[in-house]
Each structure stands twice: as structure tokens, then as C-alpha cells.
Design a protein around this nucleic acid. Structure first.
Length: 589
RNA sequence: GCGCCCGUAGCUCAGCUGGAUAGAGUGCCACCCUCCGAAGGUGGAAGUCGCACGUUCGAAUCGUGUCGGGCGCGCCA
């Protein structure tokens, strides 16, 4: 019940408030944990808040409030300090009781009903399946997975979803890239465009096609190049050259479709499946699991994109200009109107994205969280605008932006472009650094903060990663328990006489355990799993400090059992916290 | 040019719905294993919270301006 100490104190303050200032009874009661031990366990600034509206001296008000605070079995003393704070000092027994709660509730300790079982969808990563995931995707994956675990722990009904961009031009480019590599295996060499996908994995897929189907897809290089504009000189970077390269790529795609006919669909789905499977297994190994893999193409197949645009059109939010259809997003706060259907009849990515969000609403999610790279922030107003235009509540949608992880190698910024093929994959990173360190490192800073990811440092100093500090605390408790000569562990701990625990280390540690449920709730409210990471570091620090100061396996039986109960509670909370972050808890290391 | 994010210890970062003497890790200095795991602990040095105004009992936190860094402003995805 220690978890409720805070609400208990709030009730006390509320009672005092209604007696001192009945007309201010709706003032919010704020209780915070003071930084300094001398200021007690909780501090309330109510007197200072009231001072403003009542135009009275805060210390006088504090005195009045203090005299009206009802007696409590948990409070040792309450006193006025500073400019008018009311500081509560809890009785040791009230602080220690949390140990019993932790042991009794086990892996449920810290769970919250904050979310009210409401349906929330979290969509994250959603990288184009055009190549391996890189370290930037890894951050979105670690953040999204931790956030999903966190919200589930805080009482939400969470659906984890990956939006598969299987309908666009990028997939066509990847397909034609693989096909050109395949042709090269048969001596039908076509100059490989620099804006096609360069990575080795593309050659790998070409070889797979050769192994599985032999020369079935071979066409002459001459026919492939038929009618294409050709490539400009490599050195040229002017707009004309760029446009020509894009045109060349499109012409190659068009030729490929014509020459291959039905076989084009095979190539296309082959490369899609290969990349998607690679991506899925990569994420699975990283401890990132999805409930739904949602196909963009399905939005077209079911006609939802079309219906969606028609619905906007009927509502008068779409107009035609220069042969294209525009959504009037400026009417909903966007900087400019956006094209939803090009003059060539093709829908834009934005169009299918509107349909996707409509679909999310139709599936009954009460809250929708999109995790996007920070470079997409300009995209938020148009999506929210589209929702408003469809008579949906834009506030149901939260977009959490994740800044890129900037990778440094040999002190230099490493490129992360997928097309150029010069990127460090998430797989490589995981193999070098380890999944645990990776997951923890990624969420150790606020998601909207740039992350300097120094590969060399992460590799060479992985032992200094804070994740080991926390895991070490866990392993230490395991070690003590292994050496504890006790047959009936659970019962003995449950019956431990906690009043034996009276030194400052023990009270501080117990108080910290009591904060865990609050930490969960504030992290969930702020969509900020890094708060849990920082909390766990503090908890581990408190334990290490205690461990160095006091022995657990002492002769005094009652004291021994009480200390082990505390240590076991610490271990439990570390487990609960690390589970949310997707980090393992080894018994020994 | 317009919009969004960020400037806190040598370095990497917490703290930001206003609260008391601004924190942690790392690096540096000095200590602690006859004792449950030293991947640990204890102590020390280290700060104009980018800068300037403003709001008020009180500002790292809120507002305006300014300087510096990042990103975005496609009939791309």
C-alpha cells in the first residue's frame, strides 16, 4: 500500500485545504519528492500556490494548513520549511512496507490502470523493405518496442504495427536493381544506374533468382535499354543530369515490366518477401515484435484510397489544378495544399497515408501513436489536417518524433544512405555491441534528442555501458540468494520483520522502490521510456552502495531475512524495469 | 526566407506542467577487497544552465528577441 502514500498525503492536504480555504478547494495538490533528505520524503507547495490567489503570506498559510492536517499513521512529522513548503517525513515502517508489496506483486509491481484498457496502436519503424535496417531504424525500433511495453504495463491495450510500403516506386527500383544484377550474371550487362540500389544484398537476391529459376528471366541487354534516355556522365550533379537519371530508371522499370510480363510480378514479390523477411527476423532477434504487418498495397486493392479521396472530394476539400488533385490542407493549418493524385493518375504516398489513417480509426483505436523520424515533422500538419477533413479527431493521433542516430566511425560521420549501400546495418551493430547494450543505449536519451552513436566506442567500451551496471546489481542479488541457506524462500521473505531495517541505506533504497509505480506512470504519460532507464540506474546505484556498506548474510536471523527481502525486492523491480526496455537479466555475468 | 527541434561540468546527457544549495555517467585526483561478485564502493576538484530583456514571492524551466547547431519546406517515399 506504500504506492498509495502519495495519494494518502494528497488526501490529508485536501482535507486541510477545505478547512482553511473552502473557496479554493479545487486547487491542485502537488506533492514532490525533495532533492534533499533534510526536506523529508514529500514536499507540498500548496501554501505558496494559495498565497497568490489569497494574497496572503505563504508561511502564514502553511502554518494554518499544517494545523488542519489530520493525524496519519504513516507520517512521522510534518513541518514548514523554506518559503512555505510543508514537508512530510514518513515513519520508517511506512517506507519499508513497499518491500512487502513488491514481493507479493512480483512482476506486476508497478503495473498501472492508467490506460484504462483503451485500445492504442503504435506504428513504428515502417522502413521501406528495400534493404537491411540500419542503425537509424534501430533507434525507432528500440524506442517503439519499449514504449509499447511501457504503455501495456501502464494499462493500455496495445497493438504494435509495421506499415509495409509495398506499393511504391521504391519497390520497383529495388526490383529492377535486382533484375539488372541477375542479367549481369548471364552476361547481359546493362550499365547499373547510380540511383539504383547498390548494396551487396541486391546481388544476393539476383543469385537466388538464378539458383531457383535459371535463365527464365533473362532478356537481352539491348532490349532492356530499348528507348531509354541513357545515363549522363557520372560527374554531373546538375538538375538536368539528375532528372535524366530518374528518367532512365523509370524507363528501365517500364521496359522490365514489358519484357517480363507476369514474371515481373514474381521478381517484385520475390525481392519484397526477401527484404521483409530479413527485416522481420532482424527485429525479432532484437526483441522487437509486431502484432500486425499492414500492407500499403492492400489499401489500393480494397479501394480504400479511392474512397478516401472521394470522401474528401464530396466534403469539398479537394480541387483539380494542372491536371492533379489537390487536398486543401491549408484550410486545416498546413503551409500549402498537397497533391493526392498526380496528373498521370497515380496516387501520391500522401493519399495512401490518409487512407491508412482512416483505416486505423475504422479499426477502433482510441489512441494512435506514430513514431516517425524527425525529418518527417513537416508531415504532421497535413496528416492531422486530413483527419480533420474526414471529420475525425486529430488529437487521437500522437506523432512521436525520433531524431536520427548519427553514427560515428573513426571519429567521422558515417553515411546512412540505403541507396549508396554505405551504411552500418542494425545487424552489424547488434553483433558488435550486443542486443542488451544496443536496446539500452538507444533509449538512454530522450527520443527527440540527437543520438551520437560512436561505433568504435560502443564496441571497445561495451563493458562500461550502463546496462551492465544494472544487470550487475541483479546478478549480485542472485548470487546472495544462491548462497543463502534457506529452503522456504518465499514464505521466509514474506514474513521477514522489516522493522529490523533502520539504516539510511535501507530507507533510501525502500523509498526508491516506492517510486517505481510513479516512474511508470510519468514515463507512460510522457511517452518517455528513457525515464525508466534513468530510474534503474539510480536504483542500481542505491543497491551497490548498500551492498558495499552492509552485509546481507549476517548471523542475526531476523536482520538477515529482512535484508534479503529488501535485496530481492530490488531485484524484482530491476527485472520489471528492464523487461519494459527489452533488456535481459542474467543471473550471473 | 518560413516552420520544428536542440544549446546545462572537459565529454555524453538527465532535470523543463516554475520551487529550496542545478544532478548522473565518463574523464581527472586520493582512497576501499583476511568480508555475500571490485563490471563495485567512498571522498575531491569541475557550472555566466548560449546571450539579453521580460513575467513574479521565486526562472535551467514560462514569454519575446538574439546568436550558434540540426532538420524540414516535391505531382519523392
Amino acid at each position: 500500500m506504500t504506492h498509495d502514500i502519495k495519494t494518502h498525503l494528497a488526501d490529508l492536504m485536501r482535507a486541510a485545504l477545505s478547512s482553511v480555504a473552502p473557496d479554493q478547494a479545487d486547487t491542485a495538490i502537488v506533492l514532490e519528492r525533495p532533492k534533499q533528505a533534510a526536506h523529508g520524503d514529500f514536499a507540498c507547495n500548496l501554501a505558496m500556490q494559495l498565497a497568490r490567489s489569497m494574497k496572503r503570506n505563504p508561511r502564514d498559510l502553511a502554518k494554518l494548513l499544517l494545523s488542519e492536517i489530520p493525524k496519519s499513521p504513516f507520517v512521522g512529522k510534518a513541518e514548514i520549511a523554506g518559503a512555505g513548503f510543508i514537508n512530510f517525513h514518513l515513519l520508517p515502517s511506512a517506507k519499508l512496507e513497499v518491500i512487502r508489496s513488491v514481493l507479493a506483486q512480483g512482476k506486476s509491481f508497478g503495473r498501472s490502470t492508467l490506460g484504462g484498457k483503451k485500445k492504442v496502436q503504435i506504428e513504428f519503424v515502417s522502413a521501406n523493405p528495400t534493404g537491411p535496417l540500419h542503425v537509424g531504424h534501430g533507434r525507432g525500433a528500440a524506442y517503439g518496442a519499449s514504449l509499447a511495453n511501457l504503455l501495456a504495463y501502464a494499462g493500455w491495450d496495445v497493438t504494435r504495427e509495421y506499415y509495409v510500403n509495398d506499393a511504391g516506386r521504391q519497390m520497383d527500383i529495388l526490383s529492377v536493381s535486382a533484375w539488372l544484377r541477375y542479367l549481369a550474371l548471364y552476361g547481359e550487362d546493362v550499365l547499373f544506374p547510380s540511383n539504383a540500389y547498390q548494396g551487396d544484398y541486391v546481388c544476393g537476391m539476383a543469385e537466388q533468382m538464378k539458383i531457383a529459376h535459371g535463365d527464365k528471366f533473362v532478356r537481352s541487354a539491348k532490349s532492356v535499354l530499348q528507348g531509354t534516355p541513357g545515363l549522363p556522365e557520372n560527374e554531373r550533379t546538375d538538375d538536368g543530369a539528375k532528372a535524366q537519371r530518374e528518367a532512365q530508371l523509370d524507363a528501365l522499370i517500364a521496359n522490365a515490366k514489358g519484357l517480363l510480363g507476369e514474371d515481373w510480378n514474381y521478381v517484385h514479390s520475390h525481392v519484397l518477401n526477401e527484404q521483409l523477411e530479413d527485416c522481420r527476423s532482424d527485429l525479432e532477434e532484437f526483441g522487437v515484435h509486431y502484432d500486425v504487418w499492414f500492407s500499403e498495397k492492400s489499401l489500393f486493392d480494397t479501394g480504400l484510397v479511392e474512397r478516401c479521396i472521394q470522401r474528401l472530394e464530396k466534403a469539398g476539400h479537394v480541387y483539380v489544378q494542372n491536371g492533379a488533385r489537390w487536398f486543401k490542407s491549408t484550410a486545416f493549418g498546413d503551409e500549402k495544399d498537397r497533391v493526392v493524385q498526380r496528373d498521370n493518375g497515380l496516387y501520391t504516398y500522401f493519399a495512401s497515408d490518409i487512407a491508412y489513417h482512416l483505416n486505423k480509426f475504422e479499426r477502433g483505436f482510441e489512441r494512435i501513436i506514430n513514431i516517425w523520424g524527425a525529418d518527417h515533422h513537416g508531415y504532421i500538419p497535413r496528416v492531422k489536417g486530413a483527419l480533420a477533413a474526414l471529420d475525425l479527431d486529430p488529437d487521437v493521433l500522437d506523432v512521436a518524433l525520433v531524431q536520427f542516430a548519427i553514427l560515428y566511425r573513426n571519429g567521422q560521420k558515417a553515411s546512412m544512405s540505403t541507396r549508396s549501400g554505405e551504411f552500418v546495418t542494425l545487424r552489424t551493430l547488434r553483433q558488435d555491441v550486443g542486443n542488451d547494450a544496443c536496446r539500452f543505449f538507444y533509449v538512454l536519451r530522450k527520443s527527440d534528442q540527437h543520438l551520437d552513436f560512436d561505433l568504435d566506442l560502443a564496441k571497445s567500451q561495451s563493458n562500461e555501458n550502463p546496462v551492465y551496471y544494472i544487470q550487475y546489481a541483479h546478478a549480485r542479488v542472485c548470487s546472495v540468494l544462491a548462497q543463502w541457506d534457506e529452503a522456504n524462500v518465499e514464505a521466509t521473505l514474506a514474513e521477514a520483520d522489516l522493522s529490523c531495517l533502520d539504516n539510511p541505506h535501507e530507507l533510501v533504497l525502500a523509498a526508491r522502490l516506492g517510486e517505481f509505480p510513479e516512474v511508470i506512470e510519468s514515463a507512460a504519460n510522457e511517452l518517455a521510456p528513457h525515464i525508466i532507464a534513468f530510474y534503474l540506474k539510480d536504483l542500481a546505484a542505491g543497491f551497490h552502495s548498500y551492498y558495499n556498506a552492509e552485509r546481507m548474510l549476517v548471523d542475526d536471523l531476523a536482520l538477515k531475512n529482512a535484508r534479503i527481502a529488501l535485496a530481492t525486492a530490488v531485484r524484482q523491480v530491476i527485472r520489471n524495469g528492464l523487461a519494459i526496455l527489452g533488456v535481459s537479466c542474467p543471473q550471473s555475468m
